[in-house]
Structure formats: C-alpha cells, structure tokens
Nucleic acid binder design. Structure first.
Length: 446
RNA sequence: GCGGCUGUAGUUCAGGGGUUAGAACGCGGGUCUGUGGCACCCGAUGUCGAGGGUUCAAAUCCCUCCAGCCGCCCCA
C-alpha cells in the first residue's frame, strides 16, 4: 500500500526550522507594534467574486492559479456559491474594512496579518502552492491622511527597519550587492494608467513583430509586462517605448516626489525603476519591490506592494485609499537560512541550538516517578527540563544531556532517599550535591 | 502550463544488467557494574520514488506516472 504524502507544492515545517519561523514572526510583530499596527485575521476562504473584482479577472493569479470550487447549497432556498482559497490577503482585508464599516470611525486603519495563501503554480524553490505571507495595510478615508505620501514613506521605512532587525544586510559594494534592494515606481492614478496602457499598445503595434514570441504575446495580453522583459535583443525597442512617468498627472508626480524626499530624509536607499510593474490590477501610484540575491535563485522578489487607492470602491465600498505590502515569509526564511549558512561556513562553526536548563537522569526505573515529579516542580518554576528514563545507561544519559542541556541532574537511590540530587554542569565540569529544595536556584543561576 | 536534470539506509551520497546493495555521519550495544565529550570493536539499517515492460536475470535498460530541483512563465 502506498503511503500518503503532503500534496504537491505543500510542505511540513519541522523543528528546528520552525524556531526560525517563530523568530521571524516575533520580530515582525514587534516592529509592527512599534509602528502602531494591529493584527487582523481574515478567513482563508472567500467568495471567488472578491478576487475576480479586486485582483482582476485578467490577471494570471485569478485566471489560472486559484483553488476555486462550487460550494453546494445547504437548502433549497440557498444558492450554491463559488468559493476560493485566498491567493493573497489584501482583498480580504479591504473586504473586512468595508464589512465592518471601519471607514466610519474616521480613523486611519493600520492592520497587519500573517498567514497561508494558496496559488496553483508549478512548485519551485521559494514558490509553493501553500505559502505564507506577512503583510500590512494602511487604509482609511482621505480625511484620515491615508493618501499622504508620508504613509508610503513610513511603510517603506518600516520594511527597512524590519529587514535591519532580522539582520539582512542592505546591498552594498562591501557585501558584493548580496543584500536587499528596494525598487520603486509610480504607475499612476486610475485615470493615468488606462491612458498609458493605451499609448503603450499603440507604440507596440509597429514594433511587435520584431520582438521575441513571449513579448509578442505580452503585447497582446498584458502590455505592461513587456516592460520588465529580460530578453536582451528586445531591450532597445523597450527603451524607446513611452514611459509611465510622462503620463502621470501633476498630483501623482508631486505625490511620488514627496515619497522619495521622505525616504531620503530617513536614509532608506532605493532605486527608481520606471519599468517596475505589478501583476495585480488594484495597484495605483506608488509600487515597490524588495529583492535579495541570496538563497532564492530565480524567485528573488522578497516582498512587493504598493498603493490601491481605488480597491475599496471596486469592491463596492466607500472611497478608502490605502497602501500595503506582502512579504513572502517562505522566501524570507530561505534568505535567513542562506545567510546563516554563509556565516557558519566563514566562521567554520555550526550554529548552536539553545540548550535546556537541565536534563534529569533517573538511574533505574525505581526513580522514574521521583524524576518526573521533580521535573514538574522545576518546569512550573520556569526552567526548561528534559527527563530521561531509568532504563538508560548513565553513559547514554550523559551523552544525551550534554547534547541538549547545560546541566545533568542525577537521581539514584540515595539521591531520592535523601532528597539531594547530584548535579554536574558541563561548561565548568563541576559536580556537587544539591538539596531538591535548592535545585531551582542552582540550575537557574548557572 | 512548457523545457531540462535528479529520485538508493534517519541524513549526505557511492554503485550503472549477474546471484547477499555499500560508505560516512547518526542510531543501538560493548571495551567501561553510578560519570559524557576521545578511541577501538560489534550490530541494525532499505518496498533502490510508484506502476508496467524487455531479459534466464533489472537498483541498473525502456515506457508511464509521482515528487523535488533548475530555467521559462508568473509572483511573494
């Protein structure tokens, strides 16, 4: 009989790797707290319509990557509903914003989320069918300042702070540009963009036949994507295409200039990339992407985001400009692991796991009960403790203890009878007798 | 969705038609009766990814499927 395996593109995260995931999430929560963000948790399941309208019917994500099915009606009076496993979380957050009338509070909403997302793509390193995103959104009525370029700059500065806190270096000459890089662009308002796309389509018409097959297809289906084509031969043609910057209205231009000025003031390094385009329809004005060249191979986009000033209205809500981002948590972890590996290789050391405070070693099964009872006391006082088994030889207990703990507590017949344990601390190699009552102090201070 | 590479002990990998499938690390035991890190000795590792085919004989050759990785596409 064949065994059942995790489905394609999904994976189990096991210790000790999960400790790194927890560290990443803890660091993110701490940074978000300092910037006044609160956590939001939205359902994994949403109405298909949400993504069709928010992300865009024509995008790859919606047109061919979603897990969608007809959920059967429970009663004759109820209609079957098309449901989808969320492929991203921004649409869900904005849906919740509208549903709970958060705009009526008049307050700026600063929300963050951490959770699984689903896209049915071909799996690869850094690209999974169930993957995790850490994201945040700033949204509210215009009167709350949600449209201010200060919000854009604050979000970008917060991301730089998060990556700094995780000790991912900034790309520089010193580290061979193996760090994070911020690229940003303005794709214009909801009126600028259609004008630009129309101009782009027109400009592509006469030159289309001279480009590679991929770009010919893009020129047809998604002209913006031609801009970030890597095809060498087509670069000259692409350089000559109209620039989005020339189609921005004055308000958008001024907004972008103010974002850049604020970033300069905060010392956040960036590169303006006029060709940066995003794959989701809801983006307007400021868009950005952080890339990193370690550990990710070809999937080097660590996080992406931007403004979505018209999204709430597209979902039938009030006008509620916003800006947000999503970090690929899987990719972030992959990056940290690659950096850790590189550091360990250059230091010639393996990274050390945090050790338990004590390992209790009963010498025979007769001491098992006493050992577990003592472990209970120590654990309840906050110490981390592992308990062996009386069937283990002392030699094995020592080997195990040395691997996982800072001290070994030996419990033989005499020790249990007198309530005095034999304690040996590995670092100092010092052994002594400690009354049970003093064990907590002895183990904690060492 | 397209193209390429790879699937062998828990892990990292060798073996590339021939009878009993290997190494290292790890694991269990011993030298060493309540004292580890070192050393030496012994031991167990397994549906050779799954299914089918060719052959006297398949881990090895062929086909199909599954999975991972690399590139494309796309994106976080």
């Amino acid at each position: 009989m064949s065994t059942i395996k995790a489905v394609r593109g999904t994976r189990d995260l096991l210790p000790p790797e999960t400790a790194l995931w927890n560290r990443v999430e803890q660091t993110a929560r701490d940074v978000f707290r300092r910037y006044n963000f609160g956590e939001i948790r939205t359902p994994v399941l949403e109405a298909t319509e949400l993504f069709a309208r928010g992300v865009g019917e024509e995008t790859d994500i919606v047109s061919k990557e979603m897990y969608t099915w007809e959920d059967r009606a429970r009663a004759a009076s109820e209609k079957a509903q098309s449901l989808t496993l969320r492929p991203e979380n921004t649409a869900g957050v904005v849906r919740a914003y509208i549903e709970h009338k958060l705009g009526d509070t008049g307050q700026l909403q600063k929300l963050y989320y951490i959770g699984p997302q689903f896209r049915r793509e071909r799996p690869q390193k850094g690209r999974y069918r169930q993957f995790f995103q850490i994201g945040a959104e700033v949204i509210g009525p215009s009167s709350s300042g949600s449209e201010s370029p200060l919000r854009d700059a604050e979000v970008l500065e917060m991301l730089a702070a998060l990556l700094d806190a995780l000790e991912i270096p900034r790309a520089s000459e010193a580290n061979d540009w193996k760090g994070w890089k911020l690229q940003l662009n303005s794709v214009g308002s909801s009126t600028d963009r259609p004008r630009y796309v129309a101009a782009l389509r027109e400009a592509l018409l006469p030159v289309r036949d001279r480009m590679c097959p991929d770009n010919q297809r893009r020129a047809e289906t998604n002209p913006l994507r031609v801009l970030d084509s890597k095809d060498e031969a087509d670069q000259e043609i692409i350089d000559a295409l109209p620039k989005i910057a020339d189609y921005l209205d004055d308000a958008s231009k001024d907004h972008f200039a103010q974002v850049l000025a604020a970033l300069d003031a905060c010392g956040v390094p960036y590169m303006v990339n006029p060709r940066l385009v995003r794959g989701l329809d809801y983006y307007t004005r400021t868009t950005f992407e952080f890339t990193v060249d370690v550990g990710l191979g070809t999937q080097n986009a660590l996080l992406g985001g931007g403004r979505y000033d018209g999204l709430s209205e597209m979902l039938g809500g009030p006008r509620a400009p916003g800006i947000g981002f999503a970090i690929g948590e899987d990719r972030l972890v992959l990056t940290l692991q690659a950096l850790e590996e590189a550091a360990a290789a250059s230091a010639g050391e393996v990274s050390i796991m945090p050790k338990l405070d004590a390992y209790l070693a009963p010498l025979s099964p007769a001491q098992n009960a006493a050992a577990l009872s003592l472990a209970r006391d120590l654990r309840s006082s906050g110490l981390s403790v592992e308990v062996g088994d009386g069937s283990f030889r002392l030699k094995k207990s020592f080997e195990t203890a040395d691997r996982v703990a800072r001290s070994i507590v030996i419990l033989g017949e005499d020790e249990v009878a007198q309530s005095v344990a034999t304690v040996k601390t590995f670092a100092s190699n010092e052994q002594r007798k400690v009354p049970f009552a003093d064990l907590r102090m002895a183990l904690a201070t060492e």
